[in-house]
Amino acid sequence: MIEARGITKTFGGRGGLLGTQPVAALRGVDFVLPSGGAVSFIGESGCGKTTLGRILCGMEQVDSGQLLVGGTDLARLPQRERAALLRRVQMVHQDPYSALNPTRTVRQVLEDPLALRARQLRRGRDWVESRAVELLGLVGLDPAYCLSLYPHTLSGGMRQRLVIARALTVDPDVLVADEAIAMIDVSLRLGILALLRQLRSELGVSVLFITHDVAAARYVGADGQLYVLYRGQVVEHGPVDAVISSPMHPYTQCLLSAIPVLRGLEEPAAEQLMPIAGLDAGHEPPGCLFADRCPNAEDDCALSRPTLRDAKEPGHRHACLHPRPRQVVAVPLAPDARPSGPP
């Protein structure tokens, strides 16, 4: 559905009053998001995850590289057709509190875009209303209860469902979810993730999932691909569980080591890796971008920047000169090793 080939994006660097240095947000990112598939991007703050999402939604332009939506190169299209194509990619933001206009009711939030859609499809007013009800039902909101309410009366989880319903009004092929559960109450998070899953299976919507939360990525797209971004470069990617269970790149290993262990339910992994230094985004080394923080760096890491190469399993690739697989994530304790609950 979406194919990215060598996307690069650099911000700033015009010198100017503050003498800003250019910041490479994306350095030649390739990925393929198949129809109905899921691709998850993980990484630290400032790794380029959000920029990637914004590019996919047409909010940023690439500096170089190609972005193909449904096989068509966006850059080759005239503005009008590009906008029409990008309508098939909809974004679900992190903050459902600011993504909704507080002066519009749920009905208005949905019916405005639906009215446009009705014109395109040559449908009448009845269709708009029935579709609004249908979409609310689809995202798990009760239409009878919700339609006349204003967003401030809804909980965070309900708002995020409404934002997803609004994204669905234009029948998108792709949903870009940028930290879509970060601001949702914990008891409601899994409900949103389950909804994304359901949209994948029932409507065939592809999901590009941008997150800090690797376990959430695993829930939405266990059958999909996981991409690890570091300072704009994909340092490792592969099938979700392959990357989680045998990460090759030390940066991936550091990210996965940082996940808190559910003591009593999980057993910590034998090996843990932590970066030996903080992120210094101003430093632009000729070699591996992670070498200055890497606990395993060797002398040659500072000389040349490694590109993606194949790991053992098919489709699992990493960009490390001295890869060593490590099992760093906690494993669940066997159910019979745990005491049963109270009667």
């Binding site: 899994l190 939360d213 996965l256």
Partner: peptide
């Protein structure tokens, strides 16, 4: 309702209702 990093991911179950 916590999705786990390993083991059967489908064991995670949403909590119904709202706070």
């Amino acid at each position: 309702a916590i999705p786990r990093i390993s083991g059967d991911i489908d064991r995670a179950q949403p909590l119904p209702g709202r706070p």
